[in-house]
Simulated scan of single mutants.
Amino acid sequence: MIGNKVCFFQSLESTNSYMKKHLHGFKNGDIICAKVQTAGKGRRSNIWMSNSGDLHISVYLDNTTKEDSIFDVILMITNTLVDVFNKYSIDAKIKYPNDIVVGNRKIAGILIERVIGEKDEFVIGIGLNVVTKDFSRIEKKGTSILLETDLKVDYRDVLQDFIIAYNKLIACKSCDLYNAYLDNSVIIGRSVTYKEEAYNVKTINLEGKVVLEKDDKEYAMHMNDISFKEFYDE
């Protein structure tokens, strides 16, 4: 279960950075939420644009069994976010590995950081666009709950939706989460350029690798070895 303890801040440089710095003070499922992030970050050291009224959180997961992989966490978080957006009648999909998009516009991003020590721990940062209307300061196309629905929703209500949706999915079998991830993927069946050659995206395997296909041959690629940035340029 997550959300038994939620700490709210007016402003933080980064919720993930704060949580990692004060890790000893958190228990499994604890959440911190900042109204504003001044130095939010995403995958591949990208900057996450932060606006007051959007949702900026980090979740602490204590993976004491050391059985869960990064992909297991991705399955839980991405499916949770899709369920949250479904509540607002937003047709959100998953862009591999862990962006949430509407069409070719990004509405939420996830940064999963693994902390390995005496315990195996995850700090999961989530940025979700709730009320932002102007995305001209970033290269990637963006959207928000407000732009998609004309509803001005409070970010704290969206956080509560996230907690409820996540805790419901805990009871799901891993195979169901995996199949839901595939069903909501926007890259399967698409063409992608890798090292200046065109490939077809066949599937995403159980290890979380994207399987590319070319000339009847298959190539399994790790999520850190391939990018789908061109998706946002369409």
Results as ranks from 00 to 15, higher is better:
L75H: 04
M76A: 10
I77N: 10
N79I: 01
T80N: 07
L81F: 04
L81Q: 05
L81V: 03
D83L: 12
D83R: 15
D83A: 15
D83P: 10
V84Q: 11
V84P: 06
V84K: 11
F85I: 01
N86Q: 13
N86P: 03
Y88G: 13
Y88R: 15
I90N: 05
D91V: 02
A92T: 01
A92R: 02
A92E: 08
K93P: 00
I94N: 11
I94M: 12
I94G: 07
I94T: 05
I94L: 08
K95T: 00
K95H: 06
Y96M: 11
P97Q: 08
N98G: 11
D99I: 07
D99E: 06
I100G: 03
I100E: 05
I100V: 12
V101F: 04
V101R: 12
V102F: 14
G103C: 10
G103V: 01
G103W: 06
G103N: 03
N104Q: 06
N104R: 12
N104D: 09
N104I: 00
R105C: 08
K106S: 04
K106A: 01
K106P: 07
K106Y: 03
K106V: 03
I107N: 06
I107V: 14
G109D: 01
G109M: 09
L111A: 13
L111E: 04
I112K: 13
E113H: 11
R114Q: 12
R114L: 00
R114T: 04
R114F: 00
V115R: 06
V115S: 07
V115G: 05
V115D: 08
I116Y: 04
I116F: 03
G117T: 01
G117Y: 03
E118K: 15
E118D: 08
E118R: 14
K119P: 00
K119N: 14
K119M: 02
K119S: 10
D120Q: 14
D120L: 10
D120Y: 08
E121K: 15
E121C: 13
F122W: 01
F122H: 07
F122E: 02
V123P: 05
I124D: 04
G125R: 14
I126E: 02
G127H: 10
L128M: 14
L128K: 06
N129Y: 11
V131N: 15
V131R: 14
T132W: 01
K133M: 09
